[in-house]
Design a protein around this nucleic acid. Structure first.
Length: 406
DNA sequence: CATCCACAGGAAGGACGGGGGT
DNA sequence: ACCCCCGTCCTTCCTGTGGATG
């Protein structure tokens, strides 16, 4: 046994600590977020004097450091609290996972209830009972609790949860709470109850996307931790940064690129990560994304997609009507009910928005107005679709030669 | 210039299913 | 246990339209 692991570990020539490249990792240094850290710290500082900090709403696109900064501040706050002998608590909740009223309250409460027997069960209690327990538990700490709700827009009962949490201070005597809501959807607040909106948005923080140069610094810091010395060629990090900056300055994407590039280099038994590996990684990530989307598509969309691929081989400037004709053939072959062209037009739009096809409206004058459809990676997508059992069998299928006869 | 194609894409509503409230 | 509301998926019906063609 020992020898097996030894063999594998010996092959590990590139990574020192891969964790540092994962999105969940909270680094010691957060380059180019000094301003946000300072601002958030000054908002939360009253907590250390035992006062109530304002609630905060943090907005920023994915990979702009919202979560990392919050967690970082939380850690600092708790440490500083210990140092100053103030009871400060930091609760982090990801609302994409914990997405109901009950479960949010339960999770927050259980953070304060240390004894197993008294913990709140996953289900079964009335929600307001959970709330009472939560208040009790926080009150016992007689300190300040900062509650972070990450991806707060994913909450199913956002209004109720936020209303509940934001009025906790009225029910508390000795303890104080502050809510930090994090979202990448600015429009999210529009759907909130005005009272909740004003109480959550006492302070607003915006996290702008990183520039390519800033991403370079971030990757540099992480690379120092993640990799052994001098395994990364010097142009690799700028390239990762530049590619990620093309999107919208997403640090997560940049880190993914770097990590996947290194994994590829490792698997190829190479000692250094080069630009070439980044290029391969870029393709792999995009392809993985596409295959994953295609795999999880509903059956009707899969057939429309397949019809577009087949049509693309047949026609130049494939049009909606042609896709629909092939689609109907495929449905008949597979015994699947045929939807109307109106619906198919919408499905084509959906596929377009997912970025797996390109559909742009063109006018052919006398010959109508339609969309020209192009599948982005037809060969690869076809492979994925052909593995799908729910798809009709396409052996020796070829679209009818509909040479525009009336 | 008007026409007219082959759709785009909006509006309204039906069927269905899940989840929450009582 | 029941109902109600809401969201999703789909249909039907509809009006709108860019620009080659006559």
């Amino acid at each position: 046994m020992k020898d097996i692991f030894h063999g594998i570990l010996a092959g590990d020539t590139i990574f020192k600590n891969k964790e540092a490249l994962r999105p969940s990792y909270v680094p010691e240094i957060l380059p180019h977020r000094e301003k946000q850290i300072k601002e958030l710290a000054s908002i939360l500082a009253p907590a250390l004097r035992g006062e109530t900090p304002s609630n905060v709403f943090i907005y920023g696109k994915t990979g702009t450091g919202k979560t990392a900064v919050s967690k970082y501040i939380g850690k600092q706050l708790v440490e500083k609290g210990k140092e100053m002998n103030v009871n400060t608590n930091f609760v982090y909740i990801n609302c994409e996972i914990v997405d109901t009223h009950y479960r949010v309250l339960q999770n927050v409460a259980n953070h304060f209830i240390k004894v197993w027997e008294n913990r709140i069960p996953f289900t079964g209690w009335p929600t307001d009972e959970v709330y009472t327990r939560l208040i009790d538990a926080i009150e016992k700490t007689a300190g300040v609790a900062v509650i972070v709700l990450d991806e707060v827009d994913k909450l199913k009962e956002g209004n109720d949860v936020l209303y509940n949490l934001s009025r906790m201070n009225y029910d508390l005597k000795k303890a104080r709470t502050s809510i930090i809501g994090i979202s990448n959807d600015l429009k999210f607040t529009e759907f909130l109850d005005p009272r909740v909106k004003s109480s959550l948005g006492e302070e607003n923080l915006v996290f702008p996307p990183y520039s390519a140069d800033e991403l370079c610094d971030i990757l540099g810091e992480r690379a120092k931790i993640a990799f052994k010395d001098s395994v990364i060629e010097e142009n690799v990090i700028p390239l990762c940064a530049a590619l990620a900056a093309q999107e919208h300055g997403d640090a997560r994407r940049a880190l993914d690129l770097l990590r996947v590039a290194a994994e590829i280099a490792e698997r190829m038994k190479e000692e250094r990560v080069t630009e070439k590996h980044v290029r391969v990684a870029e393709n792999k990530i995009e392809l993985d994304r596409v295959t994953e989307i295609v795999r999880t598509l509903p059956i009707q969309s899969k057939i429309v997609l397949m019809a577009s691929i087949i049509g693309g081989e047949k026609y130049e400037g494939l049009r909606t009507g042609e896709v629909y004709a092939i689609y109907k053939d495929l449905c008949r072959k597979g015994g699947i009910n045929i939807l109307t062209q109106r619906r198919i037009a919408d499905i084509i739009s959906e596929l377009d928005m997912l970025g797996i096809i390109n559909a742009r409206v063109v006018s052919k004058g006398r010959y109508g107005r339609t969309r020209e459809i192009e599948v982005s990676a037809p060969l690869k997508i076809r492979q994925v679709l052909e593995k799908d059992e729910s798809m009709p069998d396409l052996k020796d299928y070829s679209p009818a030669l509909q040479s525009k006869l009336i």
